[in-house]
Amino acid sequence: MDSDHAHVREFFAARAENWDARFPDDGPAYAAAVAELGLRAGDTVLDAGCGTGRALPELRAAVGPSGTVLGFDLTPEMLLAAARAGRGGSARLAVADATRLPLRDASLDVVFAAGLVAHLPEPGAGLHELARVVRHGGRLALFHPIGRAALAARQGRRITPGDLRAEPNLRPLLAASGWRLVSYTDEDDRFLALAVRQSRP
């Protein structure tokens, strides 16, 4: 495991047990984001970097019993917390690296990624890998339960023009990775960028 991945895993492993308790009011934002994905019964969806699995029950409800929900995370402790919270029944949980997914090309309808993009060592390469596993016309949701300004304030920093999630930066990054940004919302109570998988070269 490279140093970037080791750092991310160490960071989240130390916080996994109390993660949900730290952010008890995020549930409605997750539910609203999943509702905008346009999931249908029978779809196959991946929660990439699923953490404690807060989106998994909503994703399961959206795709129904005939659908498939996968919950992948780099940190085993986060998946254990998801299982302890009773969310393991909503998805197949697995330790996996979002930059090297153990999935076939074009095998997914949708990827949901909460807070993931900021933790990718090479965001362009990571988004390209997500594009690899999504069918043409499939969707990607980059989500955070609070917006960029609110998150920066929480972390005691300011937003800079180079912020990866700023629309002028994110749109070309997605386009170069096989995605077309179709919706962008950055409000105090949520961040949600929706993109559609483009035709393969």
Rank of each mutant, 00 (worst) to 15 (best):
D2C: 08
S3D: 14
S3Y: 15
D4C: 11
A6Q: 15
V8S: 05
V8G: 01
R9L: 10
E10S: 14
F11N: 03
A13G: 15
A13T: 13
A14T: 07
R15E: 08
A16I: 05
A16E: 01
W19P: 02
R22E: 13
P24W: 10
P24L: 08
P24V: 08
P24S: 07
D26T: 12
Y30F: 15
Y30R: 00
A33I: 05
L37Y: 07
L39Q: 03
R40N: 13
A41N: 05
A41V: 12
D43E: 11
C50H: 01
C50G: 00
G51Q: 00
G53T: 06
L59M: 04
L59V: 01
G64D: 03
G64P: 00
P65S: 12
F72Y: 14
D73Y: 00
L74M: 08
P76H: 07
L79F: 09
A81L: 10
R84M: 09
G86R: 07
A91W: 05
R92G: 11
R100C: 13
P102L: 11
P102S: 11
D105C: 12
A106N: 08
S107F: 10
F112P: 07
A113E: 03
G115H: 04
G115M: 02
G115C: 05
A118Q: 10
A118P: 01
P121H: 12
E122R: 12
E122Q: 15
H128G: 14
R132Y: 09
V133T: 05
V133P: 01
V133G: 02
V133S: 03
G137I: 06
G137L: 11
G137E: 03
R139K: 12
L140S: 02
L142M: 04
L142C: 03
F143H: 10
F143R: 03
H144D: 06
P145Y: 13
G147Y: 08
G147M: 09
G147A: 06
A149W: 07
A150S: 12
A152V: 07
A152C: 12
I159P: 04
G162F: 06
D163S: 09
L164P: 01
L164W: 05
L164F: 06
R165T: 11
E167V: 13
P168I: 10
P172Q: 04
L173N: 04
A176K: 10
G178P: 04
W179Q: 04
W179S: 04
L181D: 02
T185A: 15
D186H: 10
D186T: 07
E187K: 15
E187M: 09
D188H: 11
F191L: 08
F191K: 00
L192D: 03
L194R: 13
A195L: 09
V196R: 12
R197N: 06
